[in-house]
Design a protein around this nucleic acid. Structure first.
Lengths: 142, 142
DNA sequence: GTGAGTGCAAAGTGTTTGCACGAGG
DNA sequence: CCTCGTGCAAACACTTTGCACTCAC
């Protein structure tokens, strides 16, 4: 897995130590397209036999987010979800309020309009949150 | 202030009692264009001489939100801000990451695109969060 | 070896809840 | 008067922090 090497290089470059916990937490977030929360990651690590603590999970994620390896997602239910960011293109989220399913989307038109809105108000845009909440096809049937 | 009457009518219609606390909390949120948090409201009520508790603030806001009198805003920093909703048209927010200033905006184009994205994925759109984070003109100078 | 990283438990922060009291209808 | 709303404090959920230990470099 050459991505692991990329991860090691980034850590090296930032003067960060390369530990089993950091590697595994990153792998865990990177292993699927799911949007997992800290508790989820903590328990998965446990079952994978990697000794860890919640503190380490949170601290590691902070490092990963700061280094653009992971993206934190706040869908307004009181806890963060995390998703892989390395090699990922920008996108926003469509969330099903019934089953919690999260779909990623990208709309160039919206991206441009956002820049325009910021310009109109003299702002320099840094980032944005754009989340659509609705009911997915399957849940509409029930 | 005929708005207070409107408030009373809504409470009556919903079978809710009209209490000093509910009136004052609503007035507080309604009194300015600011986007205040619960703690802020709690302290303002205290200085205005209205006996209250945090519990009442949260419970009252919940009632107000449910009855569309107030809108809750999650800007991702761990606490909600509240804004008046009565008579307000829909809008989204542009937040200055330096000074915390919040500007409201509405972009019809974006609104339409959102509907389109939802349709494309078979979702029925219920609500959305759209927040732009950047640095405002004044803060850019510093 | 030595300092960055870790694990633990305790502390924080914002919000919610159980319960007895108080006041609106 | 009887019930809904309130105040208080304790409980909650998620996250952060202090400190001694440990392991990557």
């Amino acid at each position: 897995m050459e991505k692991i090497q990329e991860l090691q290089e980034i850590f090296l470059k930032e003067g960060l130590r390369y530990t089993k916990q950091r590697e595994t937490i990153w792998q865990e977030i990177n292993s699927s397209t799911e949007h997992r929360d800290a508790e989820d990651i903590y328990f998965t690590l446990k079952t994978r036999g990697v000794a860890t603590s919640r503190a380490t999970v949170y601290r590691t994620i902070e490092v990963l987010v700061r280094n653009n390896l992971v993206r934190a997602l706040n869908i307004g239910d009181g806890r963060y979800r995390y998703e892989n960011k390395l090699d990922q293109t920008h996108h926003d989220h469509l969330v099903c309020t019934e089953c919690g399913k999260i779909i990623e989307f990208l709309n160039e038109n919206v991206e441009q309009q956002q820049e325009q809105v910021a310009r109109d108000h003299g702002f320099t845009l840094v980032r944005h949150i754009h989340q659509l909440f609705g009911v997915c096809e399957e849940c509409q049937k029930n």
